[in-house]
Design a protein around this nucleic acid. Structure first.
Length: 593
RNA sequence: CGGGAUGUGGCGCAGCCUGGUAGCGCACCUGCUUUGGGAGCAGGGGGUCGGGAGUUCGAAUCUCCCCAUCCCGACCA
């Protein structure tokens, strides 16, 4: 039983000024957490109970799936991270430190290397696999910008599991087991979520999926279909290509003098303002134009290569989508020096005829999937102040391929069913993906197969943000009055309030009731504080968010047999008067579901 | 890392422009009253005014540098 008269708790009447999102505000106001460092929080007694409940659910589901828990140091030497290249690759996000002998150490941002080395240390036969081990540990990342309280800190708790298999089929099975365990976990935690594919089909559709809690406070944008179940990370959306059209009946393309039209907007205005260029059937719109943007790709080996991307003129190139497509190469904007090195490219008037392998520039040219054979475009003529009208894809130019780089918008067609997509916000609470052999190769994790050959182990990596999930649940379940925990992770089942002055029959009755509930296995948060007005107690009960609130007030008299208490559902606000003699049984039933 | 804002008791804020040794509400302590929706009265404790340097007889206030926090963006296995 938790007694509020002695509980280490102080609730705040005002919102803390530095808290923006609801979960941060309410967790601080309710005395669940306290900021202790930039991006770091202290868990107070109520918060720690909630945190441990979340951790328990995660652990129970991992154990039920047959996975085994291990625990690593957070303080790690440099060497393993050097071997995989991450000592440098991780950049400023890695917390680095030095010991007294000037050896380099780091605070683990994640433990791939340690898991891999641990298995290498102990196992060497295919007979030992498959294996899944996991950890629930504090991770450290020197985030450029910690924010939103627990949702994005520099120190946070993650559950990370790793699977080890000899072949791809085994990896797929390990992946599927995790997916099922995650579904059970997040269902129990009471979080609204979607599973989105986090990588494009080109990389293998099921290789990576994210579990996103669907919250407006989330920092990830994803798309979902307004009529079917399709949902995907923006990076993973594949634009449905229209049917190719015949090219034979299209009129020849003509070069038009279009002075001072380096942008799509003033090009469209110019076309509509001149009779000889106007469309007979309707006005020109931005979607009739083809915009060609050139980037420099920097490959991991240090070499660079220009890449031209063609998208319909009403859309921009989405850098994040482009990055996902060209990874591990990194795209950079085409600078003045780059234009100087390619004089065939007229800035603002770049056209397909100067692009593509075999063209004058030889620059690789990839277009949006909407640019199919037979579509007609207004696009650059590669001469300053000139555009081509009616250039036909597949007849007048042939790109080197397609690329998913155009931005995705609400209302775009769903790749699965063709209905309208909508954009929504979410926060990543879980991520499962098939790592493959990257770490096993770098660190030499091999086993002998049945034929006595050395084979490199293939791995999967599966994370859940445990501390983040606490905030996500708070975010998903709160209302205007305060927090509103799902019973499974609430700090108590029942918040018992004495609403009367000290010394009255209510106090004695409530004491007996609290003890009886305790004996019955109902978790009680007992507001036995004296000298407070009832308003304060009611407000605190609503702020703290225990799912059932019981009030011992004016229904309680000296005659226990005829006394009643009020039982209120925190979420629905629904209240019923229950005879005091029946209330333990009543609450036991309420708390059972 | 770029843009903006803010740092004053535990929390929320005023004071700064126009320098004179710090104030309000909440919370906390004592007493009395009050008790079904963040009580009333009276008394009280608590602050290196983010840090450093400077100007000045005198700095929360003016100047310079630094630090931190928050918001937007960039970044985010």
């Amino acid at each position: 039983m938790l007694r509020m008269s002695t509980l280490f708790l102080r609730t705040l009447r005002d919102d803390p000024a530095d808290a923006e999102v609801a979960s941060h505000r309410l967790l601080v106001r309710g005395g669940y957490v306290r900021r202790a460092a930039p991006g770091g929080f202290t868990w107070l007694p109520l918060g720690w109970i909630v945190y441990r409940n979340v951790e328990r659910v995660v652990r129970e589901e991992m154990d039920a799936a047959g996975f085994q828990e291990v625990h690593f140091p957070a303080l790690l030497p440099r060497e393993p991270y050097e071997a995989t290249g991450r000592w440098t690759e991780y950049g400023d996000t890695l917390f680095r430190l030095t010991d007294r002998r000037h050896n380099d150490f780091l605070l683990a941002p994640t433990h791939e290397e340690m898991f891999t080395l641990l298995v290498k240390d102990l196992y060497s036969s295919y007979r030992d696999l498959p294996l899944v081990i996991y950890q629930i540990q504090t991770k450290y990342r020197d985030e450029a910008r910690p924010r939103a309280g627990l949702l994005r800190g520099r120190e946070f708790v993650m559950k990370d599991s790793y699977s080890f298999d000899v072949d791809d089929e085994g990896l797929q099975r390990s992946y599927d087991r995790h997916r099922a365990a995650y579904v059970r976990t997040f269902d129990r935690l009471g979080l609204p979520y979607v599973i989105v594919s986090a990588m494009s089909g080109a990389m293998g559709g099921s290789a990576s999926e994210e579990f996103l809690a669907t919250l407006d406070a989330g920092e990830d944008t994803f798309v979902r279909c307004t009529s079917c179940s399709f949902a995907a990370n923006v990076e993973a959306v594949e634009v449905p290509a229209p049917e190719p059209q015949p090219v034979a009946d299209a009129p020849d393309a003509v070069v038009a003098d279009t002075p001072d039209t380096p942008t799509i907007a003033n090009l469209v205005d110019f076309l509509n303002a001149h009779d000889h260029l106007r469309r007979p059937d309707r006005d020109w719109v931005a979607a009739d134009t083809l915009k060609n943007v050139v980037f420099t790709l920097r490959h991991p080996d240090g070499t660079t290569e220009p890449l031209a991307v063609g998208v319909p003129g009403d859309r921009d190139v989405d850098l994040r989508r482009l990055e996902a497509q060209v990874a591990p190469a990194v795209p950079e904007a085409f600078g003045e020096a780059d234009f100087a090195a390619h004089p065939q490219l007229a800035k603002g008037y770049i056209g397909p005829e100067a692009l593509g392998i075999g063209s004058t520039t030889g620059i690789r040219y990839l277009v949006d999937p909407r640019v199919v054979t037979g579509t007609r475009w207004v696009t650059g003529a590669n001469i300053a102040g000139h555009h081509v009208v009616g250039l036909v894809a597949g007849r007048d130019f042939t790109p080197d391929g397609t690329i998913e780089a155009a931005d995705v918008r609400a209302g775009d067609a769903c790749p699965a069913c063709g209905s309208a997509l909508e954009l929504a916000r979410g926060i990543e609470i879980g991520h499962i993906f098939q790592l493959g052999r990257k770490y096993a190769e770098a660190l030499g994790l091999t086993v002998l197969d049945a034929d006595g050959h050395q084979v490199t182990v293939t791995m999967g990596s599966y994370g859940i943000g445990v501390s983040r999930a606490v905030a996500a649940i708070a975010e998903a379940t709160h209302d205007e009055s305060g927090l509103c925990w799902p019973r499974e992770i609430a700090p108590a089942d029942v918040h018992l309030v004495v609403a009367a002055k000290a010394g009255g029959p209510q106090t004695a009755a409530a004491e007996r009731l609290a003890a009886a509930l305790d004996d019955a296995g109902v978790r009680v948060l007992f507001d036995d504080r004296e000298g407070l007005s009832v308003g304060v107690k009611f407000k605190d009960a609503e702020l703290l968010g225990v799912p059932t609130i019981v009030v011992a007030g004016r229904g309680v008299t000296d005659d226990a047999a005829s006394s009643t208490v009020e039982v209120k559902d925190r979420r629905t606000g629904e209240r019923v008067d229950v005879p005091l003699v029946e209330v333990v049984e009543h609450l036991r039933a309420v708390c059972a579901h």
